[in-house]
């Protein structure tokens, strides 16, 4: 199915953008320590790593929806009969998708605001709007994934937890950090 492969590609792109951003955050932070030890300042280190964090979170969130990997309370899911369980999950995913679309719409306001404000980083005076644009794109992709999940566009092969799955998979339950890619 064509749509399936599109989502697979989008997922890889999202993983790549997020992973690169995180790697840069680690490297920029470490470089700042090393430079400080040698009596130098890495200009705008905190500003750049903060903005990269924002990019990382929004793009990685898209993957979280792709795999239905959000933290949920599974109480009812573990006691309700399967048809009720399915209905609840469909309801939850629809509500979630609607809200993520609203969040993506609001995200456009935030991007427009940064663009209009002409804000820059304090030291290098590097414009902020490109970061806001990339972050917003991640949010749009996240909303898209949430909608696709709610409409059942992902084949269950790609989901770690289909509506009828046994409750208690680490994927939904782990608030302290999930173990992926096991």
């Amino acid at each position: 199915m064509a749509s399936r492969s599109i989502f697979a590609v989008l997922e890889r792109v999202a993983d790549l953008v997020a992973a690169l951003s995180l790697a840069l955050v680690a490297l920029v932070t470490a470089a700042a320590i090393v430079l400080r030890a040698f009596g130098a300042n890495l200009p705008d280190a905190i500003d750049f790593s903060s903005m990269l964090m924002g990019v990382m979170v929004f793009w990685a969130a898209a993957v979280a929806f792709r795999h239905d990997d959000n933290v949920r309370v599974e109480f009812l899911g573990s006691v309700a009969p399967p048809p009720v369980r399915l209905a609840i999950r469909v309801f939850a995913n629809l509500v979630t998708a609607a809200f993520m679309v609203l969040m993506a719409v609001a995200g456009e306001r935030q991007f427009a605001l940064v663009l209009r404000s002409r804000e820059v980083t304090p030291e290098l005076r590097f414009e902020l709007w490109p970061f806001a644009a990339v972050a917003w794109a991640g949010l749009v992709l996240t909303a898209l994934m949430a909608v696709a999940l709610a409409l059942g566009w992902f084949s269950s092969r790609h989901r770690r937890s289909a509506p009828g799955d046994a409750p208690g998979r680490p994927g939904h339950l782990v608030g302290q950090g999930t173990l992926h890619g096991e």
Partner: peptide, 24 residues
């Protein structure tokens, strides 16, 4: 070479001009 926490970005820029290292 002194590491100084500046109150703001512009203070940081001034400290850098003095030869100090602004540490945010």
């Amino acid at each position: 070479g002194m590491k100084i926490r500046p109150a703001s970005a512009s203070v940081g820029n001034y400290l850098a001009a003095l030869g100090a290292i602004p540490v945010k």
